[in-house]
């Protein structure tokens, strides 16, 4: 296969992947952020303590997370057809991707918001602030670095999931690698696809880390070096690890605990 033949395939597949990741990320934020906030507020001792709602949302979130993505996608075919009018192609895949990622992101948001010091909530309540004030002036701004770190993780997971979109004819780089690389033994094309995926994932991670670091520095805190700079920053003699490592250190932990 020549480069001239590969080029249009790679271009279309990349655009499909970006299309799917972009739109599914958008819907994931729209769905996951409110769900995460709801989980925190309705929990025991929360501002809107409500065991029934909390348990119900928790069950739905866990259900969404326990299904393997490929199963979820096939299971959602009728729903995708209902929402976007078609059960195949990138648009249909966006529906499945968003629904798969919303519970994941909701848990990450929940973890991030829980780390906000309750004293801050109390301070705002003592000023006469209500629930909305607490959400928009305290919880979200204070948890923003952690939420961004969680979003980075979610976007990278979405890039991975989007490889399975081929199962519903979604196209994208993952599909290209399977169809040409595996089924037609075009190793060259597969390798280029893999490199492209690595580049995209690295770019997302660096952008996320940079955002987290900028936000953390805004608070006057010392942030650890981020991304590639970690590689060539010489190991320093552990300068007070607990005190100086801010929000982004919580990101890997958040992934584990979710």
């Amino acid at each position: 296969m020549t480069w001239a033949e590969m080029q249009p395939l790679l271009r279309d597949a990349s655009l499909d992947t970006l299309f799917m990741v972009w739109w599914s990320t958008l819907y994931t934020i729209l769905g996951g952020l409110p769900l995460g906030i709801l989980l925190v507020l309705t929990d025991r001792g929360g501002l809107l303590q409500n065991t029934v709602v909390n348990k119900a949302v928790g069950v739905v979130v866990n259900l969404g997370r326990s299904l393997p993505f490929i199963v979820l996608m096939v299971w959602l075919i009728p729903f995708s057809r209902f929402v976007v009018g078609t059960s195949i192609g990138p648009s249909a895949a966006v529906v499945a991707l968003a629904i798969g990622a919303i519970p994941f992101f909701a848990r990450l948001v929940e973890t991030a918001l829980r780390e906000v010091d309750h004293g801050l909530v109390e301070a705002v309540q003592s000023m006469g602030g209500g629930t909305w004030t607490v959400i928009f002036k305290v919880l979200l701004p204070q948890a923003l670095p952690s939420v961004i770190a969680g979003l980075t993780t979610t976007v990278i997971a979405l890039i991975g999931y989007s490889a399975m979109a081929g199962a519903v004819g979604g196209g994208g780089l993952g599909n290209l690698a399977i169809v040409y690389g595996y089924q037609r033994s075009e190793t060259g094309l597969m390798n280029i696809t893999i490199v492209l995926l690595i580049v995209i994932v690295t770019a997302v991670q660096l952008a996320g880390d940079l955002a987290v670091r900028t936000l953390a520095r805004r608070g006057g805190r010392q942030a650890a070096p981020v991304g590639l700079r970690r590689l060539w920053t010489p190991a320093r003699p552990a300068p007070k690890p607990a005190a100086t490592v801010p929000a982004q250190a919580e990101a890997p932990e958040a992934v584990k605990s979710s």
């Binding site: 004293g119 801050l120 301070a123 305290v138 923003l144 936000l215 805004r218």
Partner: peptide
């Protein structure tokens, strides 16, 4: 509204770092 007319100061300051 009544709370907004009562100031409160805390042991751990409770300032928004953001």
């Amino acid at each position: 509204k009544a709370r907004s007319r009562i100031g409160m100061v805390f042991q751990h300051f409770n300032l928004l770092s953001s």
